[in-house]
């Protein structure tokens, strides 16, 4: 087990005016992740994701329960653990904002005690794979968010950690940057067997990167299983939105799809479909046999909706 928690609990005391109140951010969480897995850790804001991660890496001490990361006790063995784990916090940088990206890598390599040759080879490998070369000499504060995130991921992987934890790695990134980052992570995992644990608000991250999903709600584990299973549990369907050339009657009775609603007297129609049993292309073909399609878009399920329905179902 690379991550193992039993009854992991974390309480915070918050001040409300003069009174103090205890809030349980993580509530008796028990989970186990085996080496090589890729796990999506999802939940609404304030559900306890970041608190869990901070306990996994030794920044926070649990109020109760046990936690082992890479077989180590995160707080007591923090320094040993730091050599074996890489962490990317989407909101806080581990690079030096006034230094060129490449120089940050050099310092981090020294911090992790990599030998010169090894550091250079690893750094060159990551720079190439993540396409960092163009801005290697640019100070961190001048690079775009997408470029910075790629640099952050490279920084977290310099010392070849066996576990990579990513907290909201794609937040605020454009489609292309997201795509590049996901592809890289998939390769990294395939070639080095790196275990991935990521929190995200983006269903796309989960679909393309994770073979297992953990849903946390109010500090408790609400779901643990595959993405398909999650979709089945909550019926997480995609919605095809079509704009028709002329108003048409509601498109009911299409194969493997349900009509949700129409707008503009039938000019725009929302059709839900299950990605398991059909594809967007097949559905579009079916639609175009009945009406002329001028424009279309596909809406992915919001993670908040998924979590909400999980929560509703588990009650």
């Amino acid at each position: 087990m690379i991550i193992e928690t039993t009854g992991l609990t974390r309480e915070f005391r918050v001040r409300e005016g003069l009174r103090r109140r205890t809030v349980r951010a993580v509530d008796e969480l028990s989970l186990a992740v085996t080496a090589g897995e890729s796990v999506g850790y999802i939940g609404a804001n304030g559900a306890g994701k970041s608190t869990t991660i901070k306990m996994l890496v030794g920044i926070l001490v649990p109020t109760a329960g046990e936690v082992r990361t890479c077989g180590l006790r995160p707080v007591q063995d923090r320094r040993d653990l730091a050599r074996r784990v890489g962490v990317v916090f989407g909101q806080r940088s581990q690079l030096w904002w006034d230094l060129p990206v490449g120089e940050s890598f050099e310092i981090l390599a020294t911090i992790h005690g990599l030998r010169d040759g090894e550091a250079r080879a690893r750094s060159a490998e990551l720079v190439e794979l993540l396409e960092i070369g163009d801005y290697l000499a640019t100070p961190v504060r001048q690079v775009s968010l997408g470029q910075r995130m790629r640099a952050e991921v490279a920084a977290a992987l310099l010392h070849r950690p066996e576990l990579l934890i990513l907290d909201e790695p794609t937040i605020g990134l454009d489609v292309l940057s997201k795509q590049r980052l996901r592809e890289f992570l998939v390769t990294q995992r395939r070639e080095h067997g790196t275990t991935l644990l990521l929190t995200t608000h983006d269903m796309g991250d989960i679909e393309r990167l994770c073979d297992r999903v953990l849903v946390v709600d109010h500090g408790r584990l609400a779901y643990d299983g595959s993405l398909d299973g999650l979709a089945r549990t909550v019926g997480a369907r995609r919605v095809l939105v079509v704009d028709l050339a002329a108003p048409a009657a509601d498109l009911v009775g299409l194969p493997d799809a349900t009509h949700i609603r129409s707008e503009g007297g039938g000019l725009r129609q929302h059709l839900a479909f299950d990605a398991e049993s059909t594809t967007a292309a097949r559905l579009l073909f079916a639609v175009s046999e009945r009406a002329e399609v001028r424009d279309l878009s596909i809406e992915e399920p919001e993670i908040e909706d998924v979590v909400r329905s999980i929560y509703a179902a588990s009650r």
Binding site: I59, R78, D80, A82, R83, V85, F89, R92, S93, I111
Partner: peptide, 14 residues
């Protein structure tokens, strides 16, 4: 506030 302290926790030095 800047989160720099948390980053220190992730490195193998005191």
């Amino acid at each position: 506030r800047a989160g720099t302290l948390d980053v220190f926790f992730l490195r193998p030095q005191p």
